[in-house]
Computed example of a mutant assay.
Amino acid sequence: MIGLQFGIHTFLNFDNLGQLLPLVWGSLVAGVILGLIAGAIGPMIHARDLAFAVHGTSELSFAGAAAALFFGVSVNLGAIAGSLAAALLLGWLGVKARHRNATIGILLPFGLGIGVLFLALYTGRSSNKFGLLAGQIVAVQSTQLVSLAVVAAVIAAVLVPIWRPLFFASVDPEVAQARGVPVRALSMAFMVVLGLAVAMTVQLVGALLVLSLLITPTAAAARLTVRPFMLSVLSVAFAITSAVGGIVLSLGPGLPISPYVTTVSFLIFLVCVVIGRVRERRGWNQRPEVGHHPHADALHTH
């Protein structure tokens, strides 16, 4: 019993939470911003089946950040440069999953290897190395918060005007192209947005656990609804809960943020899975009619 109590106190400690929260207000704001970004683009990642692409992009983001750390330049800019390089390449390849996945399989180990090389050459603080892999948002500074807000504004400025045609091109690219939607251009634009989002998310949970914010919240929301609008709302809510909840839970124990973010995200997913199955058994889910696309309300806007 003593060992169990010690274990729980080691991982969950709220004794000084009231004193610690004011010290990390910037981190909490950053968590909200990242949750908004991740939740907003999550449904598009889900519709375009780009979970593997997110992982590959995060590894090049990690490589860029590690290189920037070694050369003594902005880690944020390095992460963005690496993400954009991967995103532009994947966007240039188009929407064919076969070619895209093969390229990601090549980029992923290359990016991880380059990143590990630069971290091995870096002679500074070990916490900086660990932060690139596991995140260190509890140490966010005002300049980092400003840069995060600027990138979020850029993502919103690009994503909002093209949301409807982009979703149309995501769920049915062949029909969209036949109706005159610039599928390839939209794909390239979204990959750039995705690259920026990945670079920012890496700053929270690190390169190895980026999927917990960009993939898991939408996967959880998809267990509850098929409607694009509600899918986006729930994805944003789940992503913000994961980010902010992970920050708050990690404060007392003083442990890395990433395990808490990923655990909260995973628990939300499990709860949604259970709710979804219960609703299916009781016939509460609204099932699309035969021949009706689950995202028809998005498709018929065009």
Rank of each mutant, 00 (worst) to 15 (best):
G254H: 09
Y122I: 08
L133T: 09
G78R: 01
G254M: 08
R98S: 14
V261E: 00
G252K: 06
A298K: 07
L4I: 13
E289R: 13
S61M: 07
L231G: 03
A176R: 00
A221K: 00
L166F: 04
L214F: 00
L121R: 06
G245L: 09
I80N: 01
G246A: 08
F71R: 10
L186V: 01
L234I: 07
F238H: 02
R279D: 04
D297V: 14
G245V: 11
S258W: 00
V192H: 02
R100G: 01
S74R: 04
L36V: 15
V158W: 12
Q141I: 10
L224N: 08
N285A: 12
Q144K: 05
G195Y: 00
L119K: 05
A81H: 04
V198E: 00
L204Q: 03
F167S: 13
V273H: 04
N128F: 15
T263K: 10
V154D: 06
L77W: 11
R125E: 15
V248H: 03
L145M: 06
L23R: 15
D15Q: 15
I114C: 08
L34R: 02
A176D: 00
V140S: 05
V226T: 12
F229C: 11
T262M: 07
L299I: 12
A102K: 08
G35A: 08
V140C: 04
L255A: 08
H302G: 14
I257L: 11
A51I: 08
V160C: 05
V271D: 04
V226Q: 12
Q136S: 15
L88K: 08
V150I: 14
T57N: 05
A85H: 06
A30I: 00
G42Y: 02
L21Q: 07
V54Q: 00
Q136A: 14
H302L: 15
P182K: 03
V264M: 04
G91S: 07
L69Q: 03
L196M: 12
E174V: 09
G3N: 13
A63H: 03
S250Y: 06
A67M: 11
L23G: 08
S235A: 14
I80W: 00
